[in-house]
């Protein structure tokens, strides 16, 4: 009975009404993000290893290199924990980013992606949803890593504000990395390729001032670090944790993260175009 509330006599009216009704863009994005988060948390096995690995790295680096700051010019008397913690956060951003790409691959495989393409949802919302969910997951990971850091005796030179900056930078970076894995997912539709694709970013976390400040690098790795946007993100995080507010360093970090994020989102959007055009 009356399943379709519009009966045939006023179909024209319902057609006009249906055509004019729109879901606000922001709601589209939050709804899609919420959906991705719900499914992520229904498969906790997908995110727990990432958190464990980040914490593991933090322990290993501080355990083995904890006294190194005494021998490193420019770090003497400072906490190596605060210096290395951003590396742990960036690498967790990397592993967390795979979540968004895997979510898209899952949707492509189970056909829900096609179903969503048949709705009036904006294409950007389709991408931003899983990317934001990836970033939120990553935010939680970052908070956990920071909490472990605090337990190990981390002290932020800029207090809570600095911690928030670290989280914000991680989130922007996470959206960017997510965009990258989403793009690979859209181009290949393959879980294995998406997994592999997220490793392409792995060198970025090491071709930079990973273990020592940039000033101590030399040769090709110094050049690589200077072109690597991760370097400036790490520097910004380290500055707020070790030294205090430094507008220029902070701005450079935020710009690097944002540019990386935007470029990778556009890459994802282009990948969506090519995916839908090909079919």
């Amino acid at each position: 009975m009356g399943v379709l509330t519009a009966e045939s006599e006023n179909v024209t009216a319902s057609r006009i009404a249906a055509n004019s009704k729109r879901m606000p863009f922001l709601l589209q994005v939050t709804t899609m993000a919420w959906r991705s988060l719900v499914t992520t948390f229904r498969t906790p096995a997908a995110i727990i290893p990432g958190i464990i690995i980040s914490v593991f790295f933090l322990f290993v680096y501080t355990g083995s290199l904890g006294n190194a700051s005494n021998f490193l010019p420019g770090l003497a008397g400072k906490s190596y924990l605060a210096f290395i913690l951003p590396v742990s956060i960036v690498s967790s951003a990397l592993s967390g980013a795979g979540v968004a790409g895997q979510a898209i691959v899952r949707d492509i495989e189970n056909g829900y992606f096609d179903k969503l393409l048949l709705t009036p949802l904006s294409r950007s919302a389709l991408l931003l949803g899983p990317m934001i969910a990836g970033a939120v997951t990553l935010g939680l990971q970052t908070i956990i890593v920071l909490a472990v850091g605090l337990l190990l005796g981390l002290e932020s030179a800029t207090g809570l504000g600095g911690l928030l900056v670290v989280i914000a930078l991680a989130l922007i970076l996470g959206v960017g990395f997510s965009g990258f894995t989403v793009a690979i997912a859209l181009r290949t539709g393959s879980a294995a390729a998406t997994q592999g694709g997220s490793f392409l970013f792995f060198p970025l976390t090491f071709l930079t001032a990973t273990f020592v400040p940039v000033a101590l690098l030399s040769g090709w790795i110094k050049t690589a670090a200077e072109y690597n946007p991760i370097t400036y993100i790490l520097e910004a995080m380290r500055a707020v944790l070790l030294d205090g507010w430094q507008a220029e360093v902070l701005l450079r970090g935020l710009t690097s993260a944002s540019v990386l994020g935007i470029v990778l989102f556009v890459f994802a959007l282009l990948s969506l175009r090519s995916r839908t055009a090909r079919r």
Partner: peptide
Amino acid sequence: DPLMKSMELLTIQAQTFG
């Protein structure tokens, strides 16, 4: 999506149409 529930899927579906 096998991880979602029917109510969630249908609600989102209708929402996307305004």
